[in-house]
Computed example of a mutant assay.
Amino acid sequence: MLILLAEVNRLVYAPLLLAAVSLVYAGTRHEDLRSILRHAGSFGVWTVVFMAAIAAVIEVLAFFQ
C-alpha cells in the first residue's frame, strides 16, 4: 500500500514540474509576458505529447516481449 501512495505522490508533482520547466524555458527565449505564456503553453503541450508517444512505444514493446 505504501508503494502505491509513493507513486501517486510523484504524479501530483508532475504538472507543477512541467509548468515550471515550460515557463523557465520560454522565459529564456522571450522577454514579453504574452510571448512567454504562449511559448510555455506550446512547449508544455509538445512535451506531454512527446512523453505520451514514448510511453506508447514502451507499452507496445512490453506487449510483444
Rank of each mutant, 00 (worst) to 15 (best):
L2R: 14
L2G: 07
I3R: 08
L4Y: 06
L4R: 13
E7W: 04
V8S: 06
V8P: 01
V8T: 09
N9Y: 05
N9M: 10
R10C: 04
L11D: 00
L11N: 05
V12T: 09
V12H: 07
Y13M: 07
Y13N: 02
Y13L: 12
A14K: 05
A14M: 02
P15H: 08
L17Q: 12
L17S: 06
L18A: 14
A19K: 01
A19N: 08
A20P: 02
V21F: 11
L23S: 09
L23N: 07
Y25W: 07
Y25E: 05
Y25F: 12
A26F: 11
A26N: 09
A26H: 09
A26P: 03
G27Y: 03
G27P: 02
H30S: 08
H30P: 01
E31Q: 15
D32K: 15
S35C: 08
I36H: 09
L37P: 06
H39T: 14
A40M: 04
S42F: 11
S42R: 14
S42M: 13
F43W: 07
G44D: 00
G44E: 00
V45G: 00
W46S: 14
W46N: 11
V48A: 13
V48H: 00
V48R: 01
V49T: 11
F50D: 08
M51Q: 09
A52S: 12
A52Q: 05
A53D: 05
A53W: 03
A53L: 12
A55V: 04
A55H: 06
A56T: 15
V57D: 04
I58F: 08
E59T: 13
V60F: 10
V60R: 06
A62D: 03
F63Y: 13
Q65P: 00
Q65K: 12
